[in-house]
Design a protein around this nucleic acid. Sequence first.
DNA 1: ATGTAGTTGAAAAATTTTTTCAATTAGGAG
DNA 2: CTCCTAATTGAAAAAATTTTTCAACTACAT
Lengths: 129, 129
Amino acid sequence: MELEAIIGRLRGRGYKVTPQRLMVLKALAAERHQSLEELRGRCSGVGLATLYRTLDLLTGIGAVRRLELGDGPRYELAGDHHHHLICESCGEISEFEECPLDGAGLGRIGGFSPRAHSLEVYGRCAGCR
Amino acid sequence: MELEAIIGRLRGRGYKVTPQRLMVLKALAAERHQSLEELRGRCSGVGLATLYRTLDLLTGIGAVRRLELGDGPRYELAGDHHHHLICESCGEISEFEECPLDGAGLGRIGGFSPRAHSLEVYGRCAGCR
DNA sequence: ATGTAGTTGAAAAATTTTTTCAATTAGGAG
DNA sequence: CTCCTAATTGAAAAAATTTTTCAACTACAT
Ligand SMILES: [Zn+2]
Ligand SMILES: [Zn+2]
Ligand SMILES: [Zn+2]
Ligand SMILES: [Zn+2]
């Protein structure tokens, strides 16, 4: 999701577009799956509480995805559908776009109707083998 | 993984089989994907620190799986391979065994060699539609 | 039965996240 | 542009969660 679209969505829902929110959005746009500390580093001047609040807000309107990849929470702009590879040796996080559920994907499991999914793959990266 | 097997694995690695550990294991065997509070309830007499330590230990030896399903961490015995369905309306957690990655699964993604994966599906359960 | 390394609970400490509240500000109305 | 108001912010306090410390205790090999 693009910055402009997110800003529009914020305004459309009655939220203000503040410098702090813009700073967080730009920080998120700079790199994917960042930890809170990394975001902190890129958002100097933004208070910690505001950072939490902003991530909550952005997650709430679907602009940001919160990840649980093994170490604490991470965040990234919710744009293209992709999944994560986590190296259990060095901790490196990489991504892949080809969703294995695309084809014979999830039709309807029992009475459950899927809306979204998350898939994480653990193993060893090329460098660590 | 069965209790006996886990006990064997503990002993094999030089860990003691204590009443507290047995109690946690039985609590885990009683129900899947439990929160810490639920486990606490089933493990009266086991100190909180011991509960954390035991879950860490069991996770470390591969007997327990730690889940992140949206609300805090949950734990379950690492036995059969399965995945979770989380209802975004009522919070109900259900499971399914047919792994969508079985067939054309994960051969080797780039240079990354997969060892395990976790897949969570979010949507609405039968009751909530 | 004995010895010892591993384990436990309670409390303290460390971490992480949320809440409070007075001061500030974005953005619409005039 | 100026006013007005509801939304937002930062700092500090509070709450929630997890880890560490340490003296007392215990599983289990010998
Ligand atoms: Zn690696
Ligand atoms: Zn996918
Ligand atoms: Zn439901
Ligand atoms: Zn699977």
